[in-house]
Amino acid sequence: MSATDIPEASTDPRSDSHSLERSAKRFGDTFFRGLSTGSGVLILLILAAVAAFLVGLAIPALLADPETFQFSRGQSFWKYVAPYAFGTMWSAILAMIMAVPVAVGIALYLTHYAPKRISSTFGYIIDLLAAVPSVVFGLWGIAVLAPAMRPLFLWLNEHFSWIPLFAGQVSGTGRTIFTASVVLAVMILPIITAISREVFLQTPKLHEEASLALGATRWEMIRQAVIPFGMPGIISACMLGLGRALGETMAVAMVLSGSGIISFKLLTSQNPNTIAANIAQSFPEAHDIGRNQLIATGLVLFIITLAVNMTARWIINRRKEFSGAN
């Protein structure tokens, strides 16, 4: 509204605060509606642009004659990408198995066991862990964790080699998929912890009291009221963690000495590489169709991540009526 409107408005008796007529455009409403709609559209556009880029540059690799490939010449693209897709999911799954119970445990401790003072300081430290750059985790993985894991590997190999996971010749460097997964687990721990903690704090007091009044112990109360109520949130938290584990590049590229093989063995020097790490390691030497090949693997990673997220949404929606949201 410009300054010249004001005297005009005040002389017109109908435009005072008693008027029921629709006033001229409310600038604030229009502006913020435009801003929020625009932001929503923008993220869709960015996503579409990324997808278009990936598909556009991946198609040449998908259509090309495998004999012209730079990487794994003579094999189809799917044969080329399969081990990396496997390595990506295998390392992420291992990381999740290690991180989720610990993260949920920490979140429960912070919200339901720890004294107030400890819980706020502790929570702050967890958040700090999320701020450590992945290259630092990579350095730590190579310099500290890998050598430190060696004795554990030897012990596991000696006593449990009858389990196929722990069979084979133990790696001399310790830079195996197991070590890489531990690094990933440490990296995704803070995000899962932070979100789970927020979710657990949201549990209605009423439900906790309902459980206690039935004669539940503290742990039973957590199992009966807190965890079921927080389950959708825990799943969301896990998906964010999983997304990070699937896409993590630097730390894996540094720690893992991998190659294009499929192997479930955790302790040997023959390890599958991940898609992201393989792209980072191979891109500097890639040219022509080789670039397209790597971008096509990127597209596969994109699709895997998308599929994981959609599965999670589906799981959450399936139990919607029991979610406590109604």
Partner: peptide, 11 residues
């Protein structure tokens, strides 16, 4: 309790 509090995650 004052407000009905059945467990929402249970049948």
């Amino acid at each position: 309790f004052q407000r009905p509090n059945p467990f929402p995650t249970m049948s």
